[in-house]
């Protein structure tokens, strides 16, 4: 037994056999997941690209190659400028608010306080609730005749804005709901980030006579920067994908005031059946998200190599 095992050819054969078994195990373990991604992610991404060059309407049997026509149509589409502007406004304002309010909440709640953990959990709760359900509750809250905001403002003698039917107020209304839903997530992440900053850094700063502002500026902010970077990118990605709130509350309206890229994709694909143009929006959205995710991965790499 030992003799044969020591024979080089035999041991190589055994190694190969074992490796071959390991590979099978690997395929059995990781294969289904990757196969499903192949069917429902990689292939459709390519199909989406192909559809963006076609004039198909989902119902007819005709599917003709039309080159870049859909791309030209989208560029010339009078709504497209509005849609892009809405997307930028919605993403930048909601990400900024979530980041700043979350930072404030994280800093204030990161002390020894009674009820701190309860407050953290309460703040986090909207994050796990259905976006559709939250949107419905907020339609009632925003109702200019019977809603919560009307009820609060009435004794003060202020008229409630006509939130969801006024083109100037609809996008801010959507931003408010988004921030309400995601603020707790940012706060939880900030608190975790703050707790990862070594306490002796603060002690050292104190001994050196650094003021509260200087400690914040030179210890807290640098210590939080990786967490902030993570939050900026994940918030941008999730705001790009914020569909349920918009579909339930405004359906992109009034007069396109809340029509963002993701809503336009749905509208073109599943309401107008303009599959080709929906494909173009899909590619635009993909390129934007791809860019943001690449940034995030570069940050992950840095984290790993410094760890």
């Amino acid at each position: 037994m030992q003799n044969t095992a020591r024979h080089p050819a035999n041991s190589i054969r055994r190694l190969i056999k074992r490796d071959w078994r390991e590979w099978l195990v690997f395929l059995a373990f990781a294969g289904p997941n990757v196969a499903l991604f192949a069917i429902f992610t990689y292939t459709p991404l390519i199909n989406n690209l192909l559809l963006s060059f076609s004039d198909w309407n989902m119902i007819s049997a005709d599917k003709n190659f039309v080159g870049l026509q859909n791309y030209v149509d989208i560029i010339n589409d009078s709504q497209m400028g509005k849609v892009l502007l809405n997307t930028v406004l919605f993403t930048s304002s909601s990400v900024l608010l979530v980041l700043l309010l979350g930072l404030g909440g994280g800093l204030l709640l990161n002390q020894k306080l009674r009820g701190r953990n309860a407050a953290r959990s309460i703040l986090f709760t909207p994050n796990i609730l259905s976006g559709a359900a939250i949107a419905i509750v907020w339609i009632y809250i925003f109702d200019p005749r019977f809603g919560l905001i009307y009820t609060v403002l009435k004794p003060l003698g202020i008229d409630s804005p006509k939130w969801l039917t006024d083109p100037n107020w609809a996008l801010p209304a959507i931003v408010i709901v988004y921030v309400w839903k995601y603020l707790g997530y940012a706060t939880v992440i900030y608190i975790a980030g703050l707790q990862a900053i070594p306490g002796d850094l603060y002690e050292a700063a104190r001994v050196d006579g650094a003021s509260a502002w200087m400690r914040f500026r030179h210890v807290t902010l640098p210590g939080l920067s990786p967490v902030m970077f993570f939050l900026i990118l994940t918030s941008i990605l999730s705001s790009f994908q914020s569909f349920d709130i918009i579909n339930v509350m405004t359906k992109g309206g009034p007069v396109n005031a809340t029509n963002t890229l993701i809503y336009r994709l749905y509208e073109l694909g599943f309401i107008n059946f303009a599959i080709g143009r929906a494909g173009v929006i899909g590619m635009v959205l993909f390129v934007m998200m791809f860019a943001v995710t690449l940034l995030q991965l570069r940050y992950l790499d840095r984290q790993v190599s410094y760890a």
């Binding site: 490796d19 390991e22 590979w23 195990v25 690997f26 395929l27 373990f29 990781a30 997941n33 990757v34 991604f37 429902f40 992610t41 990689y42 292939t43 459709p44 991404l45 199909n47 989406n48 559809l51 990605l237 790009f240 994908q241 569909f243 993701i262 994709l265 749905y266 694909g269 599943f270 599959i275 929906a278 494909g279 899909g282 590619m283 959205l285 993909f286 998200m289 791809f290 995710t293 690449l294 991965l297």
Partner: peptide
């Protein structure tokens, strides 16, 4: 589990993470 080019499988999953559900919803 040992596998040749195991890291490539990891990269494939990373790519999947970059493709949001909404983009591939029509296909």
């Amino acid at each position: 589990v040992r596998f040749p080019k195991r890291d490539w499988v990891f990269v494939l999953l990373l790519v999947a993470l970059m493709v949001p559900e909404e983009v591939v919803i029509v296909p």
